[in-house]
């Protein structure tokens, strides 16, 4: 046996196959996840659309505050309706 062409131990025997394996490993290593759930961070599942699961930087607010502001927004429209009705009754 010729020692100069000795094959390194382990792995595929031919250079072409070794390269293919190396390439496959390289692409697997550089591949990025296609979704937040695949990255292990929650998010949309197969049957459910979820947009917000991480805490991003931004103007941090408590959920209850948002809830009350939302109700406030709607109530303000209710109040407008009521005022319109009243003024319509009294001034027309």
């Amino acid at each position: 046996m010729n020692s100069s062409s000795a094959v390194a131990p382990g792995g595929a025997r031919t250079a072409a196959k070794r390269k293919a394996t190396a390439d496959r490993k390289a692409t697997a290593a550089t591949q990025t996840p296609t979704s937040t759930r695949a990255a292990g961070a929650g998010g949309s599942s197969s049957t459910m659309l979820k947009l917000y699961t991480d805490e991003a930087q931004g103007l941090r607010v408590d959920p209850l505050v948002v809830l009350f502001l939302a109700v406030g927004f709607i109530i303000s429209v209710v109040v407008l309706h009521v005022i319109a009705k009243m003024t319509g009754k009294f001034f027309n």
Partner: peptide, 22 residues
């Protein structure tokens, strides 16, 4: 867009995930 790789985003990086969500 992210799933079909039309935008470049690495969702295993936290900052990218936050940007993605925002």
């Amino acid at each position: 867009l992210a799933g079909l790789k039309y935008i470049s985003v690495n969702l295993s990086v936290r900052l990218d995930r936050e940007l993605f969500q925002t």
